[in-house]
Computed example of a mutant assay.
Amino acid sequence: MSRRTVRNPSLRKRVVIPVLGGLAATALVATGNLAGAAPAETGSERGPLSAAFTDAADRYDVPRDLLVAVGYGETRLNDHAGKPSHANGYGVMHLVSNPGHATLKEAADLTGEPLADLRGESEANILGAAAVLRDYADTQGLKAEERDGVHNWYTSVARYGGAEDDSTARLYADTVYELLSDGIAADVQGGEKVTVTPREVSPERGELADVRPHGVGAASEDYPPAAWVPANAGNYTKGRTAAISTVVVHVTQGSYAGTISWFQNPEAQVSAHYVIRSQDGEVTQMVRDADTGWHARGGNPYSIGLEHEGFVDDPAWFTDAMYRSSAALTKHLADKHGIPKNREHIVGHHEVPGNDHTDPGPNWDWDFYMSLVNS
């Protein structure tokens, strides 16, 4: 089993909230025992972020490893200096405040923490996420003896993701449980390491068990290797007013599942044609090539937008698998639509006239990417 690593996230200092109750965390090894929560913290694993996860897990009786996996799937445990994501989500746990999803407000109501602290302080942010997950579990009807097992939290995790449809909700929850299966080793600021021990997982999917997994049986007509998950019809324009001449490279400022969910939200008023996942380069098409995505303002009529999972300030998201998958897609689009394979026609969001975005940012390796497009 593999471990995933991320480095250099920002962590603001805050007084750690004391443990107020809940079951004691127990070590969990990869033997299929799903009842435990937190492995013992030793050496470099003792630090403010690790303590925040343990304290929040104990206070709200949420499995500590599950809490870490949710945060890692959202942000790689990086608070991005309090800046919001594309979906207006904040902190390492991506507490969201938008018309379709309101985990930030839910966290404030449940914990009494000020909104500013929930947005900008990691300990409060983690506590808020634990409170929201516990509230969902209570609504789900989880009893005290059931809350220790991570396999029982699947539908609560799916709800936390805020997906508009069941397939995307399953994608979100499956991603968290894949992280639990693989294990996590996240190096954070100050030499601290936050870990999750790999284990066998067997989630209880409840009403999502019969939902078709993401990408199964729904291939793109424009690019067959991609899954087809349409954006909300209110987030793009049917047809085009100009010939396709440009590919625009974006960074999602959020997770893969979260971005797909956001483009399905009628309140988003934004979309791109394709979304590419960091870990393995999986591609989802959400707007047909022949239609106009809303991703680059004045550049929309003549361009195809490619969103890459991650954040511009964290190069750990830009994996070899992502580069190669995206380059294969761009090469296909260039050949199909007669787009020259050069930097005048394959551009970053920040290079499209009339845009104020900075993506894909200085961590995107253009030389490597273009060498793959032209190979």
Rank of each mutant, 00 (worst) to 15 (best):
H332Q: 09
A163D: 12
V157T: 05
S371D: 13
G161C: 07
Y72R: 03
L115T: 10
E113K: 15
E41S: 15
S303F: 06
P340W: 06
M286D: 14
L104D: 10
T330I: 15
W294Q: 04
Y136P: 03
G348A: 12
E267Q: 06
W228S: 07
G298A: 15
A268F: 02
P203F: 07
V283H: 03
H337C: 07
E45S: 14
G73S: 11
M93G: 09
V216Y: 04
S325V: 09
A209I: 01
L180S: 12
H250W: 00
N374G: 01
M370K: 06
F53T: 08
A316V: 15
G298P: 00
Y160I: 11
G298M: 13
D367P: 01
D289W: 07
D65C: 14
S167L: 13
S255N: 00
V176F: 12
E307G: 11
A233H: 10
D138V: 15
P360Y: 04
K336V: 15
A40I: 15
N33F: 13
E344A: 14
G36C: 04
A51D: 10
I304P: 08
S271C: 01
G36A: 13
Q140E: 04
P63F: 08
Y223L: 02
V283D: 08
S44F: 14
A268V: 01
G47F: 11
Y160S: 05
L95Y: 02
G36N: 12
N374H: 04
K13F: 03
T5V: 08
E344C: 08
H349L: 13
A242G: 03
E178P: 02
L329D: 02
A185Q: 13
W317E: 07
T292S: 06
F53R: 02
D222T: 03
I304G: 13
P198L: 15
T284A: 05
H308C: 13
W153M: 04
T103L: 04
D65N: 15
R324F: 13
S303W: 07
R3C: 00
T197C: 11
L115D: 02
G217W: 03
F368K: 00
Y369M: 00
L77A: 10
G91S: 09
S255V: 11
G89R: 07
D65I: 10
A257H: 02
A327K: 03
L95E: 05
G22E: 01
E41V: 15
Y236D: 00
Q264F: 01
D210K: 08
S50C: 06
G183T: 12
Y256M: 00
K238R: 13
Y160Q: 06
T292I: 10
T54W: 05
Q253W: 08
V287N: 06
P9D: 00
I346G: 09
G91D: 09
P340V: 10
V188Y: 07
N98D: 09
E267A: 14
V62E: 11
A169S: 14
R14V: 02
T292Y: 01
E178K: 13
H86Q: 08
E123T: 14
A57N: 09
L179D: 14
Y72M: 12
G36H: 10
G21H: 06
R134M: 03
D166P: 00
A35F: 07
D359G: 09
Q253A: 02
P84K: 10
Y160H: 09
Y236C: 00
Y369P: 00
P198A: 15
A209C: 08
A24F: 06
W317P: 13
R134K: 12
V157R: 04
H250E: 02
